[in-house]
Amino acid sequence: MTTGLPVSTILLTTGFLLALIGIWGMLTHRNILRIIIGFAVMDTGLHLVMVATGYITLGTAPIIDGALSKADAASRAIDPIPSALVVTAIVIGLSVTAVMLAYAIRLYAAKKTLSIDAFTESKW
């Protein structure tokens, strides 16, 4: 069972599809918590896309030890920059989710409902 596609292309496609699923979830639901779940799904998908763009054919982790010598590193290690960016992006994603959930809790305390149809004050 082979597709012939490179590893990173398959995961890039998966990441984009997951991001699309997240966008669909964010836009169709009216419940604030469901919107936040959609955002978290989209976040995961975009992390997948970013890491996939750093993959190099038959690459290995950029950690120099017995299996990867200093001279080999330039030809066999994967691109470390997307990985470093995604590590920070994951932590920031959690922070953004936490702030959104805190606002959701405050909104529920104010109106006793989570549907965004009930929050009409800020509509123009």
């Binding site: 992390h47 690459g59 994967i78 995604v86 590590v87």
Partner: peptide, 21 residues
């Protein structure tokens, strides 16, 4: 997604995603 990061040879990201995400 953390498992797939491991397949993409990025163990640092996999660790962060598994613990945080």
């Amino acid at each position: 997604a953390a498992v797939s990061f491991l397949l993409l040879a990025a163990p640092d990201v996999a660790m962060a995603e598994a613990a945080i995400g």
